[in-house]
């Protein structure tokens, strides 16, 4: 399924091909009157035609990172660091300019299409609103464009669908409409936040295949927000693992899922019964609350390998695309 071994193609992914790059991206939220960090110093990039997975449990900050990238974080959030989209620094832009990136340069696919599509507006209206506004087309031309893109994502009788409402569609069709909406204005980057979690297992594979086809057809950069390591292994080129707002490991999807370097990543893999183990091994303890992160390595309290050294926060090699934030990684990294 994978085109080439990503480990060898990695150096070729130069800055010019990158559609998005985050450098030291941090997000803080106001909680009880003070700013509490929820994402700290996150750095990674997504290149054209490449699928990058942002992996972690709920509450690790992966969705927050995604919402910071499209510029729609929760009220009062403070986003710092650098964020480059198609070669342009976007964090300093005005809200209006920032909004222009949405749809045109970044498409977003939400987890639950039933609630992410408007309940009382026709699907056609939602699609043409977007197309008219972003591409400057007339209503009629926008409708043709909508029909075309719905056809591309494999929706039968697209004209009828445009006249309908979201509640009339099946779960798989809804997510196809969501994908079509995200792709309708030819973005170069698509962010998908758990796009298959709400779907039936049989539909999941279809939607993932569709997304892979779209990625290749339109040479899209794709950022997959997921907790599902099988999705990472089968559909992504690279993986960024997050824990408590930190990037803890970064590398090729194959490398990270097959031979994790961070104890947390291995814990994630072992918590899923699969080919390597029949036993389900839960990670001891629980994810620390936001605002109550431990000093030093945030995973240390749950880690069997932790020692005194882990009381200081381990660094992450910023230069190397394959890196781990751990004092005692499971394997030596070349």
């Amino acid at each position: 399924m994978k085109m080439t071994d990503p480990e060898t193609t990695m150096p070729a992914a130069t800055a010019s091909q990158e559609v998005m790059r985050a450098e030291g991206l941090s997000v803080a939220l106001p909680i009880d009157g003070r700013m509490v960090p929820v994402v700290t110093d996150v750095s990674f990039g997504v290149s054209r035609g490449e699928a990058v997975a942002l992996v972690g449990e709920s509450g690790c900050g992966k969705s927050m990172t995604a919402s910071a990238i499209i510029g729609l974080p929760p009220r009062g959030a403070q986003v710092t660091g650098r964020l480059i989209v198609n070669g342009r620094e976007v964090l300093g832009l005005s809200p209006r300019q920032r909004r222009k990136l949405c749809g045109n340069e970044i498409g977003f696919i939400f987890q639950e299409p039933m609630t992410a599509l408007h309940p009382t507006l026709r699907i056609g209206r939602q699609m043409t609103d977007t197309i008219c506004h972003n591409l400057g087309l007339s209503r009629r031309a926008a409708t043709e464009r909508a029909v075309e893109i719905l056809d591309t994502v494999g929706i039968p009788r697209p004209r009828a669908i445009l006249q309908g409402y979201v509640h009339q569609l099946s779960g798989g069709m809804r997510q196809r409409v969501m994908i079509a909406l995200a792709l309708s204005c030819e973005p170069s980057l698509v962010i998908a936040d758990e796009p298959t979690t709400a779907l039936d297992v049989t539909i999941q594979a279809q939607v993932l295949d569709l997304m892979e086809r779209m990625r290749k057809e339109f040479d899209l950069g794709m950022l997959f927000i997921t907790h599902d390591l099988e999705v990472v292994r089968d559909f992504c080129d690279r993986a960024v693992v997050m824990y408590s707002g930190d990037v803890v490991e970064r590398g090729s999807a194959a490398g990270v899922t097959r031979a994790p370097a961070h104890p947390y990543t291995r814990g994630l893999i072992e918590a899923v019964p699969g080919e390597t183990t029949d036993r389900l091994v839960p990670i001891p303890g629980s994810v620390p609350q936001i605002g109550a992160w431990p000093e030093g390595c945030r995973f240390a309290p749950r880690c069997a390998r932790a020692d005194a050294k882990c009381r200081t926060h381990p660094p992450l090699d910023a230069e190397n695309p394959t890196a781990v934030r751990c004092w005692h990684p499971l394997e030596e990294i070349a």
């Binding site: 949405c102 749809g103 977003f108 939400f110 609630t115 992410a116 408007h118 977007t130």
Partner: peptide
């Protein structure tokens, strides 16, 4: 969520 979607579509 559909309000976030509308914003994420650039409207």
């Amino acid at each position: 969520p559909y309000i976030t979607t509308a914003r994420a579509q650039g409207l």
